[in-house]
Design a protein around this nucleic acid. Sequence first.
DNA 1: AGCATACTTAGGCGTATGCTTAACCAATCG
DNA 2: CGATTGGTTAAGCATACGCCTAAGTATGCT
Lengths: 118, 118
Amino acid sequence: MLNQSSDLDRLFHALADPARRAIVERLSRGPAPVSELARPLPMSLPSAMQHLGVLEAAGLVRSEKIGRVRTCAIEPQALSQAEQWINARRIEWERRLDRLGEYLKTLESEGDDNGPGE
Amino acid sequence: MLNQSSDLDRLFHALADPARRAIVERLSRGPAPVSELARPLPMSLPSAMQHLGVLEAAGLVRSEKIGRVRTCAIEPQALSQAEQWINARRIEWERRLDRLGEYLKTLESEGDDNGPGE
DNA sequence: AGCATACTTAGGCGTATGCTTAACCAATCG
DNA sequence: CGATTGGTTAAGCATACGCCTAAGTATGCT
């Protein structure tokens, strides 16, 4: 595949799965070991670990192994990136709607009768 | 909060692809026909249409066919849902960090020596 | 009518994803 | 030390994804 998987690709992909979002939700309330993250999930431990791997690859989760326990924690910055992309889109369409509003006002005050450009 | 899952699944999945994000970015600047959305993408028209289908299934894009031209437009509300989920997570961990801060302050002022819970 | 345009549908192909079980470390515990 | 607990690796399999080409439909132009 030609895919060079950008940061956002990995981020959104990581969030596109209920199990992974559940993990993020849990970790938003505080760090936890792997087994605790896996327990509520309807799947085997290795599968849960795979999801954890995806989250870690996306930079959403950081983990450290102490003794035989790996403790996971959320990495808030990563989520911010996704938020920023979404925000940027909103800014764009809001600005566009503003321009459209201005334009319509102009038409109104000038009594011009051209159809709207879009 | 436990389950409108598949909505978010579709949403984040839709955003996890650069071609689809490119389409959303383009549509944030205003409506466009299918062919214009497809032109800049490094793929065939049918493939682009498939992406469009994913975006539409996710509720991110709405489209209407007039004559032989299908015009697509963005559906801002859909993106808001994703934003809200992300926001909710941030609220949670910020509140958690606040509580942690309070706790540490308490320890400091009381000179107590119990190990930290987390 | 004949032809171009703008999609749309159908079928197929290779890779990625998600899940499972079984086996394998490594750090405790009795 | 041997058993248990917590995690990791390996191998396999079914399905989903993303892409393609080829052919089909519907609209508009001349």
